[in-house]
Design a binder for these strands. Sequence first.
DNA 1: ATTAAAATGCCCCATATGCGTAATTGATTG
DNA 2: CAATCAATTACGCATATGGGGCATTTTAAT
Lengths: 209, 209
Amino acid sequence: MNENKINVSIVEDDSEIRQLLSLIIDGSPSFECKYNYSNCEDAVEQAPQNPPDVILMDIDLPGSSGIEGVRELKVKLPGTDFLMLTIKENDESVFESLSAGATGYLLKDTPPTELLDSIKSVVNGGSPMSPPIARKVLSSFHKTVDSPLSERETEVLKKLCDGENYKTIADALFVSGNTVRAHIKSIYKKLHVNSRAEAVRKAINQNLL
Amino acid sequence: MNENKINVSIVEDDSEIRQLLSLIIDGSPSFECKYNYSNCEDAVEQAPQNPPDVILMDIDLPGSSGIEGVRELKVKLPGTDFLMLTIKENDESVFESLSAGATGYLLKDTPPTELLDSIKSVVNGGSPMSPPIARKVLSSFHKTVDSPLSERETEVLKKLCDGENYKTIADALFVSGNTVRAHIKSIYKKLHVNSRAEAVRKAINQNLL
DNA sequence: ATTAAAATGCCCCATATGCGTAATTGATTG
DNA sequence: CAATCAATTACGCATATGGGGCATTTTAAT
């Protein structure tokens, strides 16, 4: 194991792609790519014996998916970064991969040079993403502009999320507890929920605050 | 207004930096940078008269911040993309900017070439971020690996977030309502909360599900 | 000017919730 | 083997919550 080279492993079922990637990476002077796997199970079992700096993980694998792979390997290899590789840019896959612990997400049309740059970026503290993925991720933070709630209701909802009860909300807004209850009823109606828990959930997930 | 060029406006209080950026951008054949502003108020008032494709927005501005600026301009200029520019990489600023509607976030040490590339990327559907920012953003999706909750408690918490009550949770888990209550008590204790609303909030914000 | 929300306020009532306390079993771990 | 902890069950109690209905005033919007 050359200490100066960035050690990369690949998990990819298509042997052609796997070998191609391996050649690109291993052929580059600053990288080394010795241990590759054709499925998740092998990777989960064997990668811990030869811990790489970065694992390129295909998402669509036979058996357990690359997402599952990251989830399992992340605990066994806390020092390894995971770069997802996929053909289709599926919304759910992106966010699931990220919450599983991926530090980057590339589409397979990424040209070789960029792939190598991305791997470098990962070990240097970056998080490379293909442009459409980055956009998707950032967009997930955007607020829903058209909240169905009135200003006052939004104010009440915020306090609901803080776990405040009728009385404290009422005091904070200088209105009666009954008014607060009326607002909450209205909020529930508009959000189509009938409990605080659901209201809080919707408020957070839809950025209504 | 040249239709072939990408139209850029800058909001930046430091006149030196503003002019420097303007020179870099306007000096490049594929860009045009005519209308720049030294503060948010001016930008909010005047930019709608000359809507640019991209606005480079400084965060630390005298008066209302660049974040506030994005929030206000985003509604007036729905077709414009906002690229934040800042010196310090403050966590809160990043996420606030994104939820305000920014589509990119660059640190001021970004070299001119990359800045231009980033602007191009934005209009082409990307979301450029400086490496440490990208890492921060992706990390925000990572699950808290060391959840203080037991598996059973996590299961209960999920159902709490769905707005289920003691009875339905109990039925779903094939245990008594009292058991569910005991679990919930334990959850509250571990999460340092004392209501569903707070528990749901923590669960979502800390990815405990 | 008329209508429609929004914001405010109130009552009753059944049930859900949170808190305290306590006990049993099984698994894990030192 | 002892100790700890997770999971389970249980009871009582004060209060919070959600549902229903109803009324007034202020503030948009048409």
